[in-house]
Nucleic acid binder design. Structure first.
Lengths: 152, 152
DNA sequence: CTAAACATTTAAGAGAGCTTAATTATATGG
DNA sequence: CCATATAATTAAGCTCTCTTAAATGTTTAG
């Protein structure tokens, strides 16, 4: 079996395991917070992208710009994002995460990580070292990632 | 910094990167297929759990059993699941993935993995080896996982 | 300066998804 | 055997999210 296939296969197995748990945690968190799929998508998008326009966001999510605008209304209402006029082109709005939005997203991350505590307990220090360097490698080599490992 | 913190921190970093991409791919796939959050949660749950009852599923998803029942109607309608009477207790229904459901889920997995192709290209064979064994370790040591790495 | 293009918002309406309450069918315990 | 508990479904109603179409304000090109 070529290394490429093995890489894929192992990754796929890990992802199945990981996704089943994180999707569950994320959906549960979303329901508790009263967040829709689009809202979750928006928050996740903003953590990485930093900011976005309304139409761009709609395109990213696969909905109309009208739908995006309405959804942003609600996110502004609950204080998770901020929407201000773009000074460079006043037709556009600049959408960013609010402080509260960042906090909420961090909480959802912690909710997803909670089951990792158990994994942590099952590993020796040496095993953790091994995993840490593998993860660093993956972070560094992921295309389109401008935040190298350990720099945050 | 203790190894525990470092493990967490590195994992967290990797997860942010990974989740932003997989959540996006999953939500987009869900929208294309016309699947709601509950439906996605159901399909993911079934891949691991194998089967479930209606109320149990509702509890897992955080909705009423009535809501679960209605959602299952739609999943049966589009042929993603099967719902049959439990012979042991005829009050209950046994919900399982249909063949089509398995196929759809696999496709969604591939959609999530598509960006990995680029990661793959950026890695040497030796680096892949390193990542593979780290992933295997994580799979094996994840609590409540009854499918050891490489056995599927 | 004006016409066309563009970004967003507003409005109206359709459908999905949820809830509670009532209903049906089955199982269990005295 | 009957009363009670349990599992699932059905029904009615509400809210959320989407769509399309029209409206508003801004920029750009001629």
């Amino acid at each position: 079996m070529p290394r490429r296939d093995q890489f894929y296969r192992t990754f796929q197995e890990w992802i199945e395991l990981f996704m089943q748990r994180s999707i569950h945690a994320t959906l549960q968190y979303a329901r508790e917070q009263g967040l829709s799929m689009s809202m979750i998508g928006t928050l996740f998008h903003l953590t990485r992208a930093g900011h976005t326009g309304v139409s761009d966001l709609g395109q990213h999510l696969g909905v109309s710009s009208a739908a995006a605008s309405q959804m942003l209304d609600r996110l502004v209402e609950v204080g998770l994002i901020e929407r201000v006029e773009d000074p460079d082109d006043r037709r556009m709005k600049k959408v960013t995460l609010s402080e509260k939005g960042q906090r909420v997203l961090e909480e959802s991350l912690l909710a997803r990580l909670r089951w990792l505590e158990e994994l942590d307990e099952n590993l020796t220090d040496q095993e953790k070292e091994q995993i840490i360097s593998a993860l660093r490698l993956m972070i560094a080599k992921t295309p389109g990632n401008d935040c190298p490992a350990g720099t945050k």
